[in-house]
């Protein structure tokens, strides 16, 4: 371990090069200023400030790194052993990772239902006129209701409530299906608002153009408004899709052996959290590329003038 200590000390000392250089620039600057070369003095002064700022940045970075290392190694590596024990990791990895297929099923199943249900809700909420009012109210009530209730409670109610109803079929579904239903109910409320905002953002002149060509109200929605809205909605929709993947870990409360359920089973046996860390790493690997993709899509859309 002394090597680590030596290396750490060496890097810390190397960081002192920044303030030393900054001081050197400053001295040169004041020398020039002393000779009355005020304009020329500004260059080393600027360099001095930049060097000092860079030094602070690198030092902060290094400080966080050292703090993390100290935390992991404190108390004879207690933290590292609790979260990252490689023996436990390797013993649980196969079963934990293969349990991730439950999360995959739930996410994919719920995504399909959410897309259909939320678009339907958005269109219901945009129905015009007094004839549309009862349907609008239904959609508003649904969205308000499911946005107000925490997802985990919906999950709990559906997962444990529906089997108690003794209704045919509905009470005898597989646990995965209750998870899919609950997550769909909850997420559709949020996603429908996304669709509604996108549809409302399509300018009225598009409707005027479509109607003036003789397209009916329905065909205007079908061919002009909804296709444009869907294009707009793709990046934020992917954001919700990522959130859905992460929230699929909530199904553990139904006793499903998903990736987290399996990891918790191991961590309770080992009395060690390494299997759960593995789940965390898995989500990192899956999620980060997707968030980068979303950022890229948003950036591209912004460049193309939002349409």
């Amino acid at each position: 371990m002394t090597q680590v200590a030596w290396a750490g000390t060496a890097i810390s000392l190397a960081l002192l090069a920044f303030p030393v250089r900054a001081l050197a620039y400053m001295t040169r600057s004041s020398a020039l200023a002393g000779q009355g070369e005020l304009v020329a003095a500004r260059v080393p002064a600027w360099l001095s400030r930049q060097t000092a700022l860079a030094g602070m940045g690198y030092a902060t970075f290094w400080l966080v790194l050292v703090a993390g290392y100290v935390f992991l190694t404190a108390n004879d590596f207690a933290v590292q052993k609790a979260f990252l024990n490689f023996e436990y990791l390797s013993r649980s990895a196969f079963l934990v990772l293969s349990a991730a297929r439950i999360n995959l099923y739930i996410t994919l199943g719920a995504s399909v239902i959410i897309l259909i249900l939320s678009l339907a809700l958005a269109l219901m909420r945009l129905l015009p006129g007094s004839a549309g009012r009862p349907i609008r109210l239904l959609a508003i009530a649904y969205v308000d209701f499911f946005r107000a209730i925490p997802t985990i409670i919906v999950l709990y109610m559906v997962g444990f409530g529906l089997p108690l109803t003794k209704l045919p079929w509905i009470s005898q579904l597989d646990g995965i299906w209750y998870a899919i239903i609950a997550l769909s109910l909850s997420f559709s409320a949020y996603v429908s608002e996304l669709f509604r905002a996108a549809i409302e953002s399509i300018h009225a002149s598009q409707v005027a153009a479509a109607r003036s060509l003789g397209l009916s109200g329905f065909k205007t929605y079908r061919h002009i408004i909804v296709p444009q809205a869907i294009r707009q909605v793709i990046p934020p929709l992917l954001g919700f899709f990522i959130a859905l993947q992460k929230d699929s870990a909530l199904v553990l409360i139904l006793g499903l052996m998903d990736v987290f359920g399996q990891a918790r089973f191991f961590s309770a046996n080992f009395f060690n959290l390494s299997p759960v860390s593995l789940v965390g790493v898995l989500f990192l690997i899956v999620t980060i590329p997707q968030t980068r993709l979303v950022d890229y899509l948003i950036e591209r859309q912004r460049r193309h003038g939002g349409s």
């Binding site: 002149s205 598009q206 005027a208 153009a209 003036s212 060509l213 002009i224 444009q228 349409s307």
Partner: peptide, 13 residues
């Protein structure tokens, strides 16, 4: 009846 608008209103998609 055909109609043409000031801001063209072509369908961007």
């Amino acid at each position: 009846v055909g109609m043409v608008f000031q801001s063209y209103n072509l369908f961007p998609h």
